[in-house]
Amino acid sequence: MESEGPPESESSEFFSQQEEEDEEVQEPEETGPRNPLLQPALTGDVEGLQKIFEDPENPHHEQAMQLLLEEDIVGRNLLYAACMAGQSDVIRALAKYGVNLNEKTTRGYTLLHCAAAWGRLETLKALVELDVDIEALNFREERARDVAARYSQTECVEFLDWADARLTLKKYIAKVSLAVTDTEKGSGKLLKEDKNTILSACRAKNEWLETHTEASINELFEQRQQLEDTVTPIFAKMTTPRQVKSAKSITSHDQKRSQDDTSH
Rank of each mutant, 00 (worst) to 15 (best):
S9D: 07
K248P: 02
D133C: 04
E228N: 14
V147E: 08
Q226C: 09
F139M: 01
L101I: 06
A82Y: 00
A236T: 13
D182I: 06
V132F: 01
V180P: 01
G108D: 06
L178R: 13
E184Q: 09
E207A: 13
R203A: 06
G5Y: 00
G119V: 01
K245F: 13
T105N: 03
L191Q: 09
G119R: 07
I173P: 04
P6N: 07
T232V: 11
A95W: 14
V180Q: 04
N218W: 11
K256A: 05
L227A: 08
A247C: 05
I73N: 09
K192F: 12
M238F: 05
E24S: 07
R107D: 13
I73K: 07
N58E: 10
E129F: 02
A215T: 08
Q225N: 13
E142T: 01
K170R: 15
E23I: 15
E57C: 04
E158P: 07
G32H: 06
R257W: 10
D260I: 12
E21Y: 14
T239G: 10
G86W: 01
W162H: 14
I234P: 06
S152N: 15
V176M: 12
S252E: 15
R224K: 15
Q259C: 00
A165D: 15
Y151Q: 09
S252Q: 15
G75R: 07
S258I: 10
T262V: 12
Q255R: 12
C114V: 09
V128C: 03
A236Q: 14
A204L: 10
Q87R: 07
I234M: 11
D164H: 14
Q50C: 13
G188W: 05
